[in-house]
């Protein structure tokens, strides 16, 4: 794969938001831990991805939400990205002596895998400049059931290509991995609503309880 992804910096603001904190509320001790963790994480991650482009007719995706999401698209990309298993090990190890650091690492790792997804999106867009793209719709979001996870991994051959597998409870391993669908259309796409209304976490969402939004 010559199109390697290098993440040189993590989006700290995003990390703070994941932790439930606004930038102003973070004290210097926390910021310092984030800084230490960022370097360690960047040294540990090995971003990998695989994607496959399907004609829409080839795909049978479960749930109304995902079908709505790619309505009007001719093609859909199934994409899987990961920052690999070393991060899981790092978090397991750090956790034993320093839970706060482990918590920060865990959050930063979530941010990192999202950044990898963004980078892959850019690569796809370059590969297929004639297409407009929808935003990334994650498996498990809305009524796009997690039960699809295993089939998804098989469709893109993620186990063999990048070492991502699924547990019998549909959890992706390595832990910091993502599966998502992007619709492709030659016509301009009306950016669909990414509202809380279509989210199955709406009732329990921590961001929403505080009057915020997860950013998705």
């Amino acid at each position: 794969m010559d199109k390697e992804i290098n993440i040189e910096k993590l989006n700290r603001e995003e990390a703070l938001r994941y932790m439930g904190i606004g930038g102003r509320e973070a004290d210097s001790r926390l910021l310092q831990i984030i800084e230490e963790c960022e370097q360690e994480l960047l040294d540990t991650i090995r971003p990998k991805y695989v994607y496959r482009v399907f004609d829409k007719e080839q795909l049978r995706l479960p749930g109304n939400d995902i079908r709505n999401h790619i309505k009007g698209c001719e093609k859909a990309v199934l994409m899987c990205a990961t920052i690999s298993g070393d991060v899981d090990k790092l978090i397991r190890t750090v956790q034993i002596n320093d839970l706060s650091k482990a918590f920060v690492l865990d959050t930063l790792a979530s941010v990192a895998v999202e950044q990898v997804c963004e980078a892959v999106e850019k690569i796809i867009s370059k590969e297929m400049p004639e297409y407009h793209m929808t935003w990334r719709y994650g498996v498990g979001y809305g009524d796009f059931s997690l039960d699809f996870q295993r089939q998804f991994i098989n469709l893109v051959n993620a186990a063999k290509q990048i070492g991502v597998c699924v547990t019998s409870n549909n959890i992706l391993t390595p832990r910091k991995s993502v599966t998502c669908v992007i619709g492709l259309s030659k016509e301009k796409i009306l950016k669909g609503k990414r509202g809380c209304g279509s989210c199955n976490m709406a009732e329990r969402c921590q961001y929403r309880k505080r009057g915020g939004h997860c950013g998705f």
């Binding site: 298993g85 899981d88 397991r92 186990a159 597998c165 699924v166 547990t167 019998s168 409870n169 959890i171 391993t173 390595p174």
Partner: peptide, 13 residues
């Protein structure tokens, strides 16, 4: 070939 699931501690098998 591989089972298709990771063994513990990486996975849960």
């Amino acid at each position: 070939g591989p089972i298709g699931q990771l063994l513990e501690p990486a996975g849960s098998l």
